[in-house]
């Protein structure tokens, strides 16, 4: 008795192989689709905006006259935001991660906090904007100041920092902390002297990635009512401000009225993307330099 009909198999074989090859190319094309769009986007932005970037644009004040408009105010605003987001998220993020990984008893509270964090990561950014509007702008009466924007963005990216710090702490080998306990160190001494220094590269990488997410966010800032008026440069955290993404937003909206605004928006996008690129490069350098030291 014959189990396999050779003729039949031979007949079908070529069509099966062709199908495989055709679809393989289709899958490749789909993969390249995203990259092609990325290329078009970058080429488009650079071709529109590159010519507008000069010293006056980077250091100038905002102006309704497209030729004289500058983004110094937005650059300063974004820098101020970073000055708030970095310490706040690292302090709260690392503290929470230490608690969850090293101190919390495996129990209901710990799993509740962990579930809560993963749920927070899925909340749309605009909802954080409303939270910031209600609590920081109105209830605490900061108005649309840098501190309100910075705290809102900090809450928004906090889950990213917590998860990154948790992973970094988990990656510290057990024998390091055991050696520390063996020498008679207490728990906090071990955390402070052994675990945290070993986890710092991972924590920094995660924080920088979170920071680059924060400074690209626009939606929460629009809800806080960040203006694009001709305001003076911010001097402290209680001043009103504008930020790079807000500037892009307003210029894009008005580009149907004044064509040049589209170019200004593109130029601002280049500045923002360069900033994000620098941040990500730093993160990658840290990651590569300190990878697998133990």
């Amino acid at each position: 008795m014959k189990y396999i009909d050779d003729v039949q198999v031979q007949k079908r074989m070529s069509s099966r192989v062709t199908k495989n090859n055709v679809l393989k190319n289709l899958f490749l094309a789909a993969t390249l689709f995203g990259l092609v769009v990325l290329a078009i986007l970058l080429i488009r932005v650079i071709s529109q905006g590159a010519a507008w970037i000069d010293w006056n644009f980077l250091t100038g004040r905002l102006s309704t006259n497209a030729d004289r408009a500058g983004i110094m105010g937005a650059i300063l605003g974004t820098s101020w935001l970073m000055l708030i987001v970095i310490p706040v998220t690292i302090f709260i993020g690392v503290g929470t991660a230490i608690y969850l990984e090293l101190y919390a008893k495996k129990g209901k509270f710990q799993s509740f906090v962990a579930t809560n964090i993963s749920n927070l990561a899925g909340v749309p950014s605009i909802v954080y904007g409303l939270l910031g509007l209600t609590i920081f702008v109105r209830a605490m009466d900061f108005g649309n100041a840098i501190i309100a924007g910075g705290l809102t963005l900090s809450l928004l990216v906090l889950p990213i920092v917590i998860v990154a710090a948790q992973e970094a702490i988990r990656a510290v080998p057990q024998h390091l902390s055991e050696a520390s306990y063996g020498m008679g160190a207490t728990k906090w001494q071990t955390v402070k002297g052994i675990i945290l220094p070993a986890a710092i590269p991972g924590i920094l990488t995660g924080s920088i990635l979170a920071l680059s997410r924060a400074i690209g966010e626009t939606a929460p800032l629009t809800v806080l009512g960040i203006p694009a008026l001709l305001i003076p440069f911010p001097g402290n955290i209680f001043d009103t401000f504008t930020a790079l993404p807000m500037q892009i937003y307003y210029w894009t909206l008005d580009s149907s009225l004044v064509q040049e605004y589209a170019y200004l928006a593109a130029a601002t996008i280049i500045v923002l993307l360069v900033l994000l690129f620098l941040l990500n490069s730093i993160a990658i350098i840290i990651r590569n330099k300190f990878q697998q030291r133990y």
Partner: peptide
């Protein structure tokens, strides 16, 4: 592609 801000 995933890291580009949505405003862009």
């Amino acid at each position: 592609l995933a890291g580009i801000p949505t405003i862009v």
